[in-house]
Design a protein around this nucleic acid. Structure first.
Lengths: 255, 255
DNA sequence: CGCAGCATCCCCATTCCTTGGTATGGTCGG
DNA sequence: CCGACCATACCAAGGAATGGGGATGCTGCG
């Protein structure tokens, strides 16, 4: 596929002015690239925002029904792997990205039964704003079009950008910001320290630590410390390396 | 530029085994695509500790000195725009992505003076782990090679993936394994549910939920739920895309 | 069969977190 | 100078998590 054809496909996406346009563009693009199905989901990281995010796909009905009925989204290994790869990935490479449980393998097997054999998924994340993924899928007995994966990479990103444009609109959503002290307290909380321990570490009163965490929760409209630490990670206020340094020192690099 | 040539360039990156390889590959790729300069930075999300991120570039010396001396990285509008775009962007489009301050415009002007006219930047984020950007830049009096931007998009992403590989090492799944039930309880905990709420959702006793979380903590040698949910995210047992849609949908405790 | 692992259930004491308040002093910009 | 924001500190009540016990039944494997 020459580049100009990609640009032509891309044009469909940049011109899409609603979700049904986007759906059609995805369908056309996936066929052009030699895929059988597509799926795109896109979520904003803020409450009170436009209803429920975006979910577009042309998967077999059987699969869609099972997926929704059993809340399979929560255990979908493909979506989990999006957090672990900067580039797109083939589903057969999932075990290299994340630990697969018995349930995960079972889920992929059911997918194959209804006609979703292998797929290529492109994930994107904007800290503090949104995340999404776009998959192009082959039906049973067909393998991925190797020569098209880079094209899929481009088209997937363009489709996600279109989904974002249609969801977010022209105005960028307001970002939650923490003060330095709040971030510090959240960091120590994520490290598993109690408010009392944190107060010793920072040299302030326990009540003050509680207060900072309280303010941080209010700002992000969250009600528990678990959500707060997770939210801070998602926004990039703190990082895994701050919390589990041993993971990089002993667990991976040297090993 | 045909696709096979892209794959050849990509090969340079996947074979790079240290940063000087990566530097050479970037230099070659940027020339092939018709750009004059490149810059790549890759940062792990962490605070306080010595920054051990990657910064590779072949910018003019004058610019590099100013950039480092005044710590311009912290206020670089190009980097800020990386948080606001799912695809690459031309520097001339910055005002469409972010509000530009006087200082921002000044900074770009200084860049032009030392020979950095316009550029195309590709940004990537992995939640909790890292952020990076890769820019391909034209010197003064030359405009961006429009036909090459999609190629740059691909090459930039591949370069960032290589930088990540060289920085964080192989991303091998951990030795710890959760059972499916444990993972489910951790997921709902990460979604902000209490043990009691989770017990209702899963249709089991509250004590059982507590037990599953207790076992999960023991397996990962952690002592708090904060660490547990964070650890599960780090390992890929649960994903951000599984958590946040829930927060913003119906069913949150606050209503 | 026996044993390990898993999922399920129960109790209790202690500690910690959340939520609702109030209050002082410092800093920075309009 | 005033208002907005930040960091600091305190109190009280109710709810939730942690860590220590113990228990049953099922499955898969050698």
């Amino acid at each position: 596929m020459p580049l100009y054809l990609i640009e032509e496909l891309a044009h469909d996406f940049t011109q899409a002015f609603d979700l049904s346009n986007l759906h059609r563009a995805l369908q056309r693009a996936s066929r052009c690239m030699g895929f059988d199905h597509f799926a795109l989901n896109f979520d904003l990281h803020r409450h009170g925002a436009s209803p429920d995010g975006v979910l577009l796909h042309d998967y077999p009905d059987a699969w869609a029904q099972v997926y929704v009925a059993f809340d399979l989204a929560g255990r979908d290994p493909v979506r989990r792997a999006c957090d672990k790869s900067l580039t797109g990935f083939a589903w057969r490479d999932l075990p290299r990205l994340i630990p697969m449980t018995k349930g995960d393998r079972q889920m992929l097997a059911i997918g194959r039964e209804v006609g979703l054999a292998d797929g290529y998924t492109i994930g994107r994340h904007l800290p503090g704003e949104s995340s999404g993924s776009c998959s192009f899928v082959m039906r049973a007995e067909r393998s991925l079009p190797q020569g098209m994966l880079m094209v899929a990479e481009l088209i997937g990103a363009i489709a996600l950008a279109a989904a974002r444009r249609l969801t977010v609109g022209p105005t960028t959503p307001p970002q939650v910001q923490f003060t330095d002290r709040q971030r510090e307290c959240v960091l120590w909380a994520a490290r598993g320290k109690t408010a009392y321990e944190t107060s010793i570490i920072l040299g302030i009163s326990e009540e003050t630590v509680i207060q900072h965490l309280k303010m941080a929760r209010e700002r992000s409209a969250l009600h528990s410390r678990h959500e707060l630490t997770t939210f801070a990670l998602l926004c990039g206020f703190i990082g895994y390396q701050d919390i589990f340094p041993w993971w990089w020192r002993a667990g991976r690099r040297s090993g």
